[in-house]
Design a protein around this nucleic acid. Sequence first.
DNA 1: CACATCATTTCTATATTAGAAATACTAATT
DNA 2: AATTAGTATTTCTAATATAGAAATGATGTG
Lengths: 266, 266
Amino acid sequence: MVSQINGSVVKAFQILQLFEPGRPELTAAIAAEKLGMNMVTAHRFLRTLELTGAVVAVSRGAYQLGFTLVDLGERAANQTNLSNVVQPVLEDLTATVEESSMASLFDGEKAVCIARAVAARPLFVDVKKGSRLEAYCTAHGKLWLAHLPEDQLARYLDTVELRPMNSSRSITREELVEELASVRAEGLSFNRGEREAEINAVAVPVLSRSGKMICGISVFGATGRMTDAAMQSFIAPMRSAAARVEALLYGPGAAATSSSESGIDT
Amino acid sequence: MVSQINGSVVKAFQILQLFEPGRPELTAAIAAEKLGMNMVTAHRFLRTLELTGAVVAVSRGAYQLGFTLVDLGERAANQTNLSNVVQPVLEDLTATVEESSMASLFDGEKAVCIARAVAARPLFVDVKKGSRLEAYCTAHGKLWLAHLPEDQLARYLDTVELRPMNSSRSITREELVEELASVRAEGLSFNRGEREAEINAVAVPVLSRSGKMICGISVFGATGRMTDAAMQSFIAPMRSAAARVEALLYGPGAAATSSSESGIDT
DNA sequence: CACATCATTTCTATATTAGAAATACTAATT
DNA sequence: AATTAGTATTTCTAATATAGAAATGATGTG
């Protein structure tokens, strides 16, 4: 045995994971059924979780996720230095594809660079940690826009001015919306000289277990080398880089929330 | 005994609570010392929490909060219908002070009304659920601005135009900043006819365990009745309303994160 | 290089938990 | 309004899972 695992704690988290979108409330009966445990046991777990503040009773026997988890989640988000997590992954990625790479967050308007790895080949791009990239004309930006809730996207489109960043022709709102649909569908976005004439880029998202976009990862370089074929060939290593970041954030044992029967027994 | 409490789960959450601001990483030794448990036990809890994804190992024996908690926190935040939680509290508050009350969130620019209770006395204010109130000239807005991180406040002040909403004279940026400092210090803000000439308001924040502002609660009414003395007398019931909301969000047992020795020792 | 510190494993006694059965609520149906 | 059905909740007890002592392994320091 590697290390004695505390079954109660595991079960407690299994119960918390039952609060999926679409099931805001949980009762002992449902938890017991879903996890194959006795209802008495499920009830006791819910009571214990209530004591810790992880769930809150909303009516007799019905529980909701509690704000203690919101607090913990925020602490986790703040303490996780995403830059540091992503940095080594970017370096490996750049070593593999032999082009520069970077990672981004979104500030509501632009994509913000949080880490980057420069390829051996010199490149004249001024992007560094903290740089804010126009959203509508960058691979990162389009990825973020594609993952935005409808209303927020509409608000963005209402306020942004889609002017061409270089000599290339400007994009219309309709064209952008259409492109974002396919970006969302494929989980992949491109930038073909839209921000800087001589720079192409591909970007993929790092996703949370629930499908929310955590950060973007891109590979970019001179248009001469970053042909469509080259970019296509980068996709696989980029996806695995994204998967590595996800693993670093969530830990090893945390398999996807498959729910249904159970998973761990004894 | 009310209900058998699962000690392991309680301990697991005690460990998670040890990740306070300033302590991003935790080791078995520290957890054991802080909670008065055996190091072996602490180690096993950390391993179990790692399995659930609640913490992630960053180096031998050192753990950080994991992204599973970020996900859970988001679910908790989304599933908690703050409006419904606050509504009954507002109604009680309004019944007590005999003036209208409302609760707000902040969308980055304005205070958004999420619930309200109208007093028996008729009032000609057009605020309803969803209404967005200018921040710099309302009690709610100023409360939110006062709780904003410095950089975000600076950005707000750079973009907003501080024009008077009615015949009253306009406020300067300096005056506003000064007022916000005292709002923050007192956890209390006023609006004396700044948005609508004949309406005064007082607002207090609902805070998270870690001090983050969750929502604002205000009482407002015609200037004739809402004298300074009256508003002062409303503060106590407003504070207790805020405390009630906090209790509803966090549950009963979740005492403030006092840390130090322990708390539960069966 | 040896020591000290801390992480990790092994082993076992015992405290804790899981479940059966009984009891208390609550709500739906007639 | 009364009966019933379906859950929630409590009580009690056996057996399991956990806590801790001691041993071992890793890591970094004087």
